[in-house]
Design a protein around this nucleic acid. Sequence first.
DNA 1: CGGCATTTGTTGACCCATTGAACTTATGCT
DNA 2: AGCATAAGTTCAATGGGTCAACAAATGCCG
Lengths: 404, 404
Amino acid sequence: MPASRSATSLGPGLPARQQSLRDHNLALALRVVADAAGPVSRAQIAAATGLTRATASTLVELLLAGGLLRETALLATPGSGRPAVGLTLAPGGLGGLGLEINVDYLAVTVVDLTGEVVLREVLDGDQRGLSSAVVLQTAARLAASALAEAHERGLRVAGTAVSVPGLVRDGRLVRAPNLGWYDVDVPGVLRREPSLAALDLSVDNEANDAARSEVTALLRSFLFVSGEIGVGAGIVLDGVVFRGTRGWAGELGHVGVDPAGPVCRCGARGCLEVVAGLEALTRTAGLAPTQGLPHGVALRAAAEAGDPATSAALEAAAVALATALGGALHLLDVGTVVLGGAYAQLAPWLVPTLTRCLQERLLWSGWERPVVRAATRGPEAASLGGARTVVTRLLSEPERWLVT
Amino acid sequence: MPASRSATSLGPGLPARQQSLRDHNLALALRVVADAAGPVSRAQIAAATGLTRATASTLVELLLAGGLLRETALLATPGSGRPAVGLTLAPGGLGGLGLEINVDYLAVTVVDLTGEVVLREVLDGDQRGLSSAVVLQTAARLAASALAEAHERGLRVAGTAVSVPGLVRDGRLVRAPNLGWYDVDVPGVLRREPSLAALDLSVDNEANDAARSEVTALLRSFLFVSGEIGVGAGIVLDGVVFRGTRGWAGELGHVGVDPAGPVCRCGARGCLEVVAGLEALTRTAGLAPTQGLPHGVALRAAAEAGDPATSAALEAAAVALATALGGALHLLDVGTVVLGGAYAQLAPWLVPTLTRCLQERLLWSGWERPVVRAATRGPEAASLGGARTVVTRLLSEPERWLVT
DNA sequence: CGGCATTTGTTGACCCATTGAACTTATGCT
DNA sequence: AGCATAAGTTCAATGGGTCAACAAATGCCG
């Protein structure tokens, strides 16, 4: 399995110094441990990286001293020879925090270096109508308490990822229509909470972070489709979210699926969003427009009850989704679709038709089957994905966390 | 302007040695010279890269010895102080060769380190019906003669890029329907020509290489749409062609644009290809199916003559293209479309409608205008793009070309 | 039970690339 | 002519990886 990923120090355009060698090789050694199933020996690190045993040893020494690795029991050696000392990622040493601010809940997740969830909290409640300052203060308190709790358990949080349901540019939330927020300096406001003041904060779109939460060793490239009132996609290529030239990539909702379809709020005709978005689904299913309550819940209930109008609406949505996704998969050459957001709950009714239509549509379905499945995470998805991102970055630049 | 690009030595997963430092910094220094408008001094290289003047000097010394750089006249210094020695890419030293094998012509282009065309030859002639062995032998001879000619002018060709109109996987041409070729070992056959035997040969899809030929310092991310009987796209992101997980990315032709459209040979309904491909265009325009002669020529003639059926057909194609491209631009967050292949010739009739429809469709057209324009290159596009790719790779790993 | 092969991890001399500071070279300005 | 200024070079110092030898810890076999 290729270690892959990227961005291990030595950015292009930057000069390489001796220190860069160290940084690169530290990350390399650390990644071997992170990607391995069980404990790993120094000799195995040397073999896997191509470095000398001598170098591997010194690197491991530094990582141990920095609290990133931990020695475990001896490894069971197959043949004869001196037994190896096992090395694993240090649990409970360093970790990452993810904080999600969404329309009807706030969520926080803390993970350790292994990516395991240490701590999670979801705070339900409709945030619409509240000012951004108030909501962000609540979120900041939530994060601060999680931070304190994590600290109490001996976990140093290395950074925080904030997920928001809107367009992010240079760390600022440009607009979040569903919250009614425009041009909010999210990190700035969060940092007013004293215990967050010094933290390394990064902000990204909620769908991107949710997509990241679905990355596994086996599934590293896929399209994460988030179906809510709007329809968005997180494009994940080899474990990395593709953001496009301006960070606006993944606008699946405004892919045209029917030139004869209804007019969208964007002005065009037959966008996926107006055909298969939750509002359209609810209307086509003949359900009353739900106030406050998420559309997904009502739809799922109706589908479970076997309501024929709802079934027909879901069928039509699946066909439209297949058209849009077929185009996207052809363009990007990706083989897997993960249904997230409200689509995850509706997956049992969407997947069969969607899969069938995609198979009919995709040029390469004769060679490789397209895979469509529901997201595995609920509302904690984005905060988990954010927290994992922090950890991934940590693993790729460990030098920042070594005591000097 | 960011130097960007990528892949300057030190691949992820590989250990970093002292030599890697050298390699990285050599490429860095070389890129400064390559990206600069005029000659550059050692001191400027040092300043631009962040390296010491001492290091910059030794790097330049190596690049001079390797024939990659050349000293020019002194630079006009603005103030006082010792005048600087100018450095430029060595013209006529190392270069790259691009060879295109297409349905109705063969083409070869040789460029020097600066990307300037040194030599070009196009051999017209329908290749259909001929066996791959025969065609490839002709192509090999063409390349060999270009190689000899270049050699005579003192140019060392560092590598060769072969462009083919079909699906490439691991260097093999899996299938090229328009040529009727299936599973051809292109490099293997080409290497039977003695003077090509030792060359570094790489193979890629013709549309990808044509797309590369449109990359400039100002335009580094765009969608290159190649309209022939099929419709393909080369996705260029920050100067690099995006290939997808299996190398099949850019299949724009089978993006669905009309659920009520005609059935495509892929089995689906309303693919872009059956609505706006050349065959469809010719048919809708009421022109006789042209034998041998490229469809594009007949269409352009009819359009120039003001034939109303042709105008209507082009208008309809532009609308369909806008639907497909709107989706693609939304997904990828790219702002520019370059029309290539036969679309380039038809651009005057396509661009106005296409631009208008895209502006109506794109969410961000209020902030930034989408740009649609015709490709600047004719049949030499792919071979030029291929040759440039060779040079780009050369510039990113200069250590391979330094005498030891 | 003892010697031996085998593998792990460590030590120290060596190599090599970048740094930093001093130095030389070549020009413009006064 | 003298001085300021900037370009390019030299050389000892720094630091990181390699290499080979070695010590440590185990299994195997006689």
